[in-house]
Design a protein around this nucleic acid. Sequence first.
RNA 1: CGCGAAGUAGAGCAGCGGUAGCUCGUUGGGCUCAUAACCCAAAGGUCGGGAGUUCGAUCCUCCCCUUCGCAACCA
Length: 702
Amino acid sequence: MSLPKRYLITSALPYANGLKHVGHLAGAYIPADIYARYLRAQKRDVVFVCGSDEHGTAIPIQATKEGTTPRAIIDKYHAAMKQDFEDLSMSFDIYHRTSEPIHHETAQEFFTYLNDRGELEIKETEQYFDEEANSFLADRYIKGTCPNCGSDRAFGDQCETCGRTLSPDELINPVSTLSGKAPIKKKTSHWYLPLGKHEAFLREWILEQHKDDWRPTVIGQCKSWIEGGLQSRAVTRDLDWGIKVPVAGADGKMLYVWFDAPIGYVSATKQWAIDNNKDWKPYWYDKDTKLVHFIGKDNIVFHCIIFPIMLKLHGNILPENVPANEFLNLEGDKMSTSRNWKLDMRDYINDFVKKENGGGQCVDMLRYYLTQIAPETKDSEFMWKGFQDAVNSELVSKFGNFVNRTWVLMHKLCGGKVPRLHEELLDENDRTLFTDIKDAKTKIENLLEEYKFREALFEVIELSRKGNQYMQKKEPWIVAKKLAENPESQKSIDNTLHICLQLTANLAILANPFLPNTARKMLHLMKVVEKMLDWDNAGKINLLSVGYTLREPQLLFRQIDDEEIKTQIEKLKSGLLKMEEPKKEEVKPEVPAKAVIQFDDFAKIELKTGTILTAEKVEKADKLLKLSVDLGNEVRTIVSGIALHYQPEEIVGRQVTVVTNLAPRKMRGIESNGMIVMAEDKAGKLHFISPAQPIDPGSTVS
RNA sequence: CGCGAAGUAGAGCAGCGGUAGCUCGUUGGGCUCAUAACCCAAAGGUCGGGAGUUCGAUCCUCCCCUUCGCAACCA
C-alpha cells in the first residue's frame, strides 16, 4: 500500500449562532485533531482546516433574539469559537469563516461551474410570502390549523400536537409568525441539484467501494438515504442573508447554506495556501490526496451524499473516509442548548483550564476523557464521576505515576542522570518490555489509521501500565538497599531506570497526538527538543543519551477531587432550574395577540366551573387523560391532554373551568364533550384555572 | 399509536454462531520508590423476556417487554 502524497483533514464547520459544547468537541474536533497531529508527527504533508459557518436563516433569527445584527452575531461567535478551540489545543492549520470574500467567490464559482454545465435545474414553485415583512416564509415560520388533528398550533413542517409531518399547503388558515397576517402565495423559481441522477455513482462508490472501510453507521445511513429515493434539492433560497446567486436577475436569492458551507473547506484551504505561500490546488484536485471529513452523525448525508456529488461534478477529489461519530449524552440525558443541559467548552475552560497555571493539564484531562468515551459506534455518556475516575485512576495513577516514580528513583539512585545500559545484563523482563514498546507503536499506528481513537488511546495507557509492572518486577528500590554488600548491583538499577526513561520518552511520542500538552511537559522534564516527538522515534530505546542530566521530578497531572465534581453537577442542575423560571425578554409574545373580537363573540363561549370526579389514562396515548367532570346538572366525559403534567389520582376533586359548548370531538376513540381551560407557563407546564374559593359545580363563568 | 435507537457484572463499554470479556469500582492478602502502583486471590452476569432455526445462540428469525429520542438548536 503506497502512502498518499498529502492529507486534507476537515472538521465540521461549527454554526456561528452560539457557543459549542463538549459533545461537538468529542464528535468532530478532537478526533480530527488527534489524526492531524499523528500525521504531522509522521512528517506527512497535512492540512487541517475548519472555520465558522456563518450563513443560513438561524443567524438572522439569533440576531433578532439578541437584538442586534447578523454581522454582529457572526463576529461575536466566530471570535468566541476560535478562542475556545485555541484554548483546548486544537491544531487547525487555519480556522476560517464563510463570510470572507474568498469564500463567497469560491462558492459562487462552484455554483456557476455546475450551472453552466447544466448540472442544475430550475423549478418554479409557489411559496408563501409575507407581504408585510416582504419576505418568503420558511416552513417553520408558518403556523396554522392541523388538517389531521385540528390543533391550531401546527407549523408548516410538522404538527406538534399529533406529530404528523406536514407541508405548508396542508395547513388550514396559515398565518405568518413574522407579522401575524395571512401570507399570500407567490411564484418563485429556484435552482435544484438533482441528486437522483447520481444514484448509480453513489451506489458504486459508497455501497461497493467503501462497504468495508467506512463505519457501519455511516454506510447504513447512506443506504437508507439512497434507497429512500434521492430527491432534487434546492440550492438557492429567497433570503437576505447569505451568498448572492451569481446570475443576472436573481436578486434576493441566496445560495442555500448547505450548499455553501462545505465549500468552506475549499476556501479555507485557499486562504491557508495564500498565508503560507503554497498551492492549494493539489489538495482538492490531485488523486494522491487523502481527504477525510470528521463530523457528527447529523452531518452524514451532507458529507457522504450531497457534497461528494458536488465535488464530483466540479472535478474535485472525493473523501477517502467520513468517520462520523454518534452523539454524546450528559449525565443520563441528551445534551440540549434550549434546556441548558450541556457543558459548553467555554464553561470547562473557565472552571478548569483558566484556573490552572497554563492550564495544559486540564486541557489534556478533558481531551483524554472525551477520547476515552468517544461515541465511535453508538451514543455515549459524559458523566462527571466518570471524568474523575478516568483522570484519577488512569491518567494520574497509571500514566502520571509511572513517569513520576521513574523520575524520583532516577534522582535518588542514579544522580539525576540517564544511567548506562549494561547490555550484557539484559534479562527476560527487559527484552519483553522492548517488544512491548515496539508492539505498542504498531498497534497504535494501525488503530489510528482505522480511526479507532478510543482503542488507540487505551494502548497508550496500557503501555504505561506495562511500565509500572516492569518496575515492580525489577524493584530497584529493594536492590538499592543491598548495594553496600553487593556494589555490582548498581548495574541492575542502572538498567532498570535506563529502560524506564526510554519508555517515558516513547510514552511522550505516543501520547502526543492525544495529549499534546502533556507530551511537551515531558519534553521539558527530559530536556529534549520538540523533534524527539517525531513518530519515527517511537519504538526506539535509545532516545535519551547516557549521562544527560534531567530535570527535577514534576507531577504531570493533578487529581480531580470530589468537591469539583459536586460543584459541576450542581451547576448543571441549577442551570436547568434557571431555565424553568420565566425569562424577562419573553414578556413580549413571539406571536402577536389574537385579533380583537366583539363581546358577542366572547358571549358565544359558555364557561362553567366543574369538579373532576374521576380521571384515568387513555390507552396508547402519552398525553391524554379521560376525565368525568361534574357540571352540577350533568356529568360529562372530557378528554384532556394533560397526562404529562398531572397524575390521574392527584386531580380528582379539583375544581376547574370548562368550556361547555364546544363541539364534541373524538380523541383516541373517546368522545370528548368540552374542554378544560388551562394556563401554560413559560416552561410549558399546564396549570388549572380554578375558582379561588370552592364553588358549586356548574356555576357560570363570565 | 407511528418512526428511530438501545437493552451484556455496581458503573461505563467490547464481543456477535462454538467454554462470557475489558476498564473502573468492591472485598481479602502481600509489597512500598511513587499523586501510590504492582502482584495474588475473591465476589459479582440464567448476555431484557418468550418461541423458533441450528449439533450448538449473547450473536440469526419472529413475537413481546422496558428504556430513550422524535418543536427548534445541534457533533
